[in-house]
């Protein structure tokens, strides 16, 4: 019986140490967050969930990521929930409106799912943000999206206004925004939950507010 034809030992591609590095994600610009996360930013080709009442800072984190993406001249997309993305806010952040596709609120969940698939498969976008009011997707749909994201190397970020304590394993990164602090509920290979002071995230967020707020208050 002929021996099992094994490939020659020499030409087996052994994995070198640096290849074992985790895939580099999209840097968020917040040093604390970047150092803590595995992918030095948002996972590329994976789902992330930012939870928090509107106005607690979830969208601005996504905007900082898009800022990074646009600095490399790449595309980003955003799906509006009941509130609209306001361009006047964006032009203080060197966001290139020519490279940011905005989609009006989809009518129903099924159309949202179809839309997400189309956006991912079009392989145009590095990061896709989706603002959800309550139309949350079912697990099988999330799995399919996860597979598509991995295939097309797209970072899909859900911004959910209704925070739920249940940690869904499908999301490789979940961040919960509260009043004054931010908890990372789930991050691959990282001890979570991990709390951070809100001001660190907002250190230079809303720069118009930092000192003027003080001015207004006095």
């Amino acid at each position: 019986m002929s021996t099992l034809a094994l490939p020659e030992l020499a030409n087996i591609p052994f994995v070198s140490a640096d290849q074992l590095q985790p895939p580099a994600g999209l840097p968020t610009g917040v040093r604390v967050l970047d150092d803590f996360l595995l992918w030095r930013g948002l996972p590329q080709g994976d789902l992330s969930l930012l939870q928090g009442a509107p106005g607690t800072g979830a969208t601005s984190l996504w905007i900082r990521i898009v800022q990074g993406v646009h600095s490399q001249n790449k595309w980003a997309a955003w799906i509006n929930g009941d509130t609209q993305l306001f361009p006047a806010h964006l032009n203080n952040y060197k966001i290139n409106l020519k490279k940011l596709l905005v989609v009006k609120e989809p009518k129903d969940q099924e159309q949202l799912f179809w839309l997400l698939q189309e956006l991912i498969t079009s392989a145009l976008f590095e990061v896709i943000g989706c603002n959800l009011k309550d139309m949350f997707l079912k697990n099988h749909q999330l799995q399919k999206l996860k597979r598509l994201c991995r295939l097309h190397k797209v970072a899909l970020v859900f911004v959910n206004q209704k925070a739920s304590k249940f940690v869904n394993p499908l999301f490789s990164l979940m961040i919960h925004f509260q009043r004054d602090f931010i908890t990372i509920q789930r991050a691959l290979h990282r001890p979570t939950p991990f709390n951070m002071a809100g001001s660190m995230i907002h250190a230079n967020f809303m720069h118009q507010f930092k000192n003027t707020a003080r001015k207004l208050l006095s």
């Binding site: 004054d180 907002h202 507010f209 707020a213």
Partner: peptide, 10 residues
């Protein structure tokens, strides 16, 4: 939102 002092305002 720690940055805003929470002095009570009219």
């Amino acid at each position: 939102m720690g940055i805003l002092t929470n002095k009570n305002l009219p």
